[in-house]
Amino acid sequence: MLLAGGALGLAACQGSPDSWGTGVVKQSDAFGDYSETIVAIPKPTAGPRQFQCTGPFAPDTTAVNLAADFGQANVATGTITSPDGSTSPGLIVLPNDPGLAMEIAWKDPGAMAAPRRISFTEESAWSVNGIGIGTSLADVEKANGGPFRIQGFGGENGGVVADWQGGRLGNIGGGCRVGLQLALPATVRDAALGPLSGPRRVSSRDAKLRAANPTVGLFWINYR
């Protein structure tokens, strides 16, 4: 049986330019003997990159695990800003690749263990359950399996999904749910924006919202 995993000793291992880093494969036989082989973890070559709350991003992962999986050169500690403006120590994975970089805030910031939220960049090549930067309102609704509600536009939280209304994106497995913020095209006129703005919740089925043709501007993963 082959078991893939990471170890603290791997944190110093560097990957090649064509890999994300290194991992260790443990191979055991019927007599209980085993061997360990360090292998390179190749970069994906085709997008979109499908994110899942498993493997390196499982609910119980740690900064040590991610350094082992991606290579120490491909992770960096830093200050992570939450949507509410608060900050905490976090980890940036693949910080030198804007299309693949992600920021991880922890439930236990001191130990850098157990993700609380993973955020993606505005130019991310990742997708989750068919959702990525630029996804249309109709396709988000399709991925959710039904309508959802967003907060009215205006302010930092404008266009953020407030309620998935029991849809699939509210529980994607692994104790995770999708968070996203819709962005309106610059061509939307103020008169059209008025009914969609302010302290209100707007359904994805709202005719005025559909006519404005918003797309996903940011998305993230929240862990329960």
Rank of each mutant, 00 (worst) to 15 (best):
F148I: 07
A4Q: 09
W164V: 09
V140E: 03
L169I: 03
D60C: 07
G132T: 09
G179R: 15
D60G: 11
P44Q: 08
P89M: 07
V140A: 06
L66G: 06
G110Q: 15
L137N: 09
P89S: 08
V75Y: 02
L100H: 05
G166D: 03
T215G: 01
G194N: 12
K142D: 03
A46M: 10
S86Q: 03
L8F: 09
G132W: 01
G166C: 05
G154N: 12
V128A: 11
I38A: 10
A113Q: 09
G99I: 01
V161I: 07
D84C: 01
A143C: 08
D69T: 15
T45L: 06
A46S: 14
G167N: 11
L66V: 10
L184M: 14
L137Y: 09
S16R: 08
D18T: 13
S124F: 03
N129F: 02
Q50W: 04
G9K: 07
D33P: 00
V93Y: 02
A212T: 04
A114F: 11
P59I: 11
S28K: 06
Q165G: 04
T37P: 03
P195K: 08
G85T: 02
G155V: 05
N213M: 15
R210N: 11
V128N: 04
P44C: 03
S82G: 01
K43E: 11
S88T: 12
I80N: 00
P17N: 08
R49M: 07
L100T: 10
V93L: 11
G21W: 07
A12I: 04
Y223I: 14
W126E: 08
T62G: 10
E36P: 01
S86T: 10
L91H: 03
G110E: 13
D84F: 00
S203V: 14
S82W: 02
T121Q: 12
P95M: 03
I92K: 14
D18S: 14
E156T: 13
G159Y: 13
S19H: 12
R168I: 00
A63Q: 13
P42F: 08
I221Q: 12
T79R: 02
T77P: 02
P89H: 08
M112V: 04
D84V: 01
S86D: 00
S197Y: 01
L8H: 11
A111I: 02
G155R: 09
P199F: 12
G152M: 07
P59T: 10
